[in-house]
Computed example of a mutant assay.
Amino acid sequence: MHTTIDNHNLNERSLQLLKALVERYVQDGQPVGSRVLSKDSQLNLSPATIRNVMADLEDMGLIRSPHTSAGRVPTVSGYRLFVDSLLTVQPVDKKLLNKVNSEFNASMEKDEVVEKASRILSEVTRMAGVVTLPNREIVQFRHIEFLKLSNNRILVIFVADEQEVHNKIIHTDRTFSAAELQQAANYLNSIYAGQSLAEVREAIVQDLEHNQHQVNQAMIDAVTMAQQVFENTSHEDYVVSGQTNLMDFSELSNMERLKQLFEAFNQKQSVLHLLDKCQHAEGVQIFIGEESDYEPFQECSLVTAPYSVEGQVLGVLGVIGPTRMAYEKVIPFVDVTAKLLGAALKSR
C-alpha cells in the first residue's frame, strides 16, 4: 500500500530534526527554516549545523524546498517516515469520547448512524469525513415475492435480515402468470432463505450453470429472475460530510484542485475502490499523497479504519484532508470512531 522508508541511515539527531520540522509545518503551514527549527528541536544546535542536516534530509528525499521560500517542507516520503516511526499518538480526550458516543442516539436507524459517524468525523477534525454503508454481502436473505406489472415487468419485494424490505422492478423475456410467480417465490424461499446475499448470488449462478438439465423450466425461470434481483446487491456506497472544509486549507484551495476533489466525491467509483483496499486490511490505514494512486488525492491524505460487528467487517470509515494534517490526533480519533460505530450498529 505504501513504501516504508528505511531510517537506519539516519542518526537520532536527523530523526529528531525531521520530527520537529514536520510538527512545525503541520502547525503553521509555512516552510520551516533552520532558525525556527533550532528553537523547536531542543538539540542546542546552531542554525548552520541544522542547515547541513536539512541538506542531508533533502538529498534523501524526505524534505524539499519550495521555490518561493528558503525553508523546507516534508515530502510524502518524509511524512511516511514520520507517521511510521516518529509519531507520538495522542489518546482521545475522555470528554470528547463520551460526547461522540452520546451522538449515536438509540432511536436512529442504521443509515442514520452511518451518516452521523460521517458528520462526527468531519466536525471534530475539520476535514472531510467518509463512511461506507454496511457491506450487503453479509446480509441474510429472508423472503421474496413477485408481483406482476404491465409490459413483462415484475415488482420484486425481498426482505433482508429482520426488518429491511427492498423493492426492485425487473424485466422478463415473457409474460408470467400470478400462479407462476407464486411458484417461483415459493421455490426461492424454500431453497435460499437464511443464506447471506453473497451465498445466494453464488448459488444462483451455479444453479444456472450446472442444474439446467436436472430441474424443470419453472425452477430455471425462478432462478433467472432471482439473478436479476441479486446481481447488484454487493454494490457499496458511502456517505461523505464536510467536503467544504477542505477549502480552508491553502494547499487545497486552488480552484482546479478543489474541482477535481469534489468531482471525485460525486463520481464515487474510484474513491470506493480506494476505500475497499482499506476495508480488507487490518487496523488503521493511511494513504499519503500519491500513495493513493489517485490523481485528485495527490495533495491529500486518507486515514481509515474498518468498522465491524461481532468480528465481521461491515465497512470502513475515515478522514480525507491535506497531507499537512495532525496525524497524532486524527489517527486515534478515526480508530475510536470505528469502534463506536460498530458498537452502535451492534445494538441495532
Score class of each variant (00 low, 15 high):
L87H: 06
N101G: 09
N105G: 00
I63C: 09
I138V: 15
S34R: 10
S34I: 00
P91T: 05
R35T: 12
P74D: 12
R80D: 02
A48K: 14
S41L: 03
F82E: 13
F82L: 10
T75G: 08
K148Y: 06
N98Q: 11
Y25C: 01
R142L: 00
H67R: 13
L87R: 08
Q27P: 00
L57V: 03
P31Q: 06
A117Q: 10
G29F: 01
I144R: 14
S107L: 05
P47I: 07
T132L: 08
D28T: 15
D84Y: 09
D40M: 10
K148D: 12
V130S: 01
V26G: 01
R142M: 05
E112H: 07
R142C: 00
N52C: 02
S46L: 05
M60T: 02
V76H: 06
L147E: 15
V92C: 07
V36S: 11
R72V: 00
Q90D: 05
L96Y: 00
S46F: 01
I50N: 07
P74C: 04
N44E: 13
Q27H: 12
M127G: 01
V83P: 03
P134E: 15
Q42M: 13
S85A: 13
Y25N: 13
H143F: 15
P31T: 03
F146K: 02
R119C: 01
